[in-house]
């Protein structure tokens, strides 16, 4: 702006322009303002139907319940903004839950080693997704679809068709319990604390140099390459973040709803819907992590609202489909 100030003798013109730029920042494609507006609208609708929802206890527990999907969406954000897809997260969540149950086998002493192992597994899956996509040049849609199928089959095979063993209470604490008797707030779910920690770390990353570079990679990989970006490595990091995020989500979900082959069913699409709803462009290069996480929260709020209004839960996937189509077409129109 200094250049403009020194050259432009007409101060008012300069100010008018920077005002426009500031407004452009909020409303431009990829900004978070639209998703904040949608979320606010849904919250108003909930308030009309169910004012109790806004009691600290129920609000906090809602946020805690939403934590897994918000974390999944955050991981998915990095993959999508870099121009790729991760369809494997749903089955990775299932795999992690089933593996945890069998390895812990209700023995509290094994909790922490197994948690460590799960992170290692999530990291490996992400690494494999990333390397196959970048080094072997397989489209990520295919890579992660393959990974999805491999994980589903492997888990079935490994557990002989039915989940065995059980999770320890120590493990389940994160998804199920809360810090009791917090002044003013009451019950503070562990899941919410985990969410805040993960969100904080990832927000920090998204604003760091590698995080900003990742967005440029999604926008134009050739430009990024010529500017010295290791494009393959950057994308692989995104897949690894997604795998680690899925691991955290699996720990929370396993704790909350227990062990089943359905633990992560369809979550990849919920996460993608959330990210797109949050203003992140499919194909990459545009959108904010905060938007993606707010998108997930908005989606959960919408499902809650549907519940309050007595809409069948069976419509969930239809609603997700409509959101993806609407969000992508609005994005495409705005980019004209």
């Amino acid at each position: 702006m200094t250049a403009e100030l020194t050259r432009d003798p007409d101060g008012t013109a300069t100010q008018r322009r920077s005002g426009a730029a500031a407004r452009g920042r909020l409303t431009r494609p990829g900004g978070v303002l639209p998703i904040v507006a949608i979320l606010a609208l849904l919250l108003v609708l909930i308030a009309i139907q169910q004012p109790d929802f806004f009691q600290p206890a129920s609000l906090l527990s809602f946020l805690g319940r939403s934590a897994p999907i918000i974390i999944l969406a955050a991981g998915q954000y990095f993959v999508i903004v870099s121009g790729e897809f991760d369809l494997s997260v749903g089955s990775l969540v299932t795999a992690q839950v089933v593996v945890a149950a069998r390895l812990i086998d209700s023995d509290p002493g094994r909790t922490w080693p197994v948690v460590l192992l799960l992170f290692g597994f999530g990291l490996l899956v992400g690494l494999a997704n990333g390397l196959i996509t970048t080094a072997l040049r397989v489209p990520s849609f295919i890579t992660t679809l393959g990974m999805y199928l491999i994980l589903v089959g492997a888990v079935y095979l490994w557990s002989d068709g039915a989940p065995r063993g059980g999770l320890s209470d120590e493990f389940r604490r994160f998804g199920r319990l809360a810090v009791e008797d917090v002044p003013l707030l009451g019950r503070l779910p562990y899941a919410l604390l985990v969410l805040l920690a993960v969100a904080g770390l990832l927000l920090l990353f998204s604003r760091s140099d590698p995080g900003r570079t990742l967005v440029a990679v999604g926008d134009n990989p050739r430009t990024a390459e010529l500017a010295g970006v290791r494009v393959g490595r950057a994308k692989t990091v995104a897949f690894v973040l997604s795998g680690l995020a899925a691991t955290v989500a699996a720990i929370l979900l396993g704790g909350y709803s227990g062990v089943s082959f359905q633990a992560g069913l369809g979550l990849e699409f919920t996460a993608i819907t959330a990210v797109v709803l949050g203003g992140v462009a499919l194909g990459g290069g545009r959108g904010a992590l905060l938007g993606a996480m707010l998108g997930a929260l908005t989606l959960e709020t919408l499902f809650t609202l549907m519940n309050f209004y007595g809409v069948s839960g069976a419509l969930k996937s239809t609603v997700q489909g409509l959101i993806i189509l609407a969000a992508v077409s609005v994005g495409a129109l705005r980019r004209r």
Partner: peptide
């Protein structure tokens, strides 16, 4: 256009 700029990113980010 093809490999000099990232068209959707800001002037500063570029």
């Amino acid at each position: 256009k093809g490999e000099g700029i990232a068209a959707g990113q800001s002037v500063l980010d570029n």
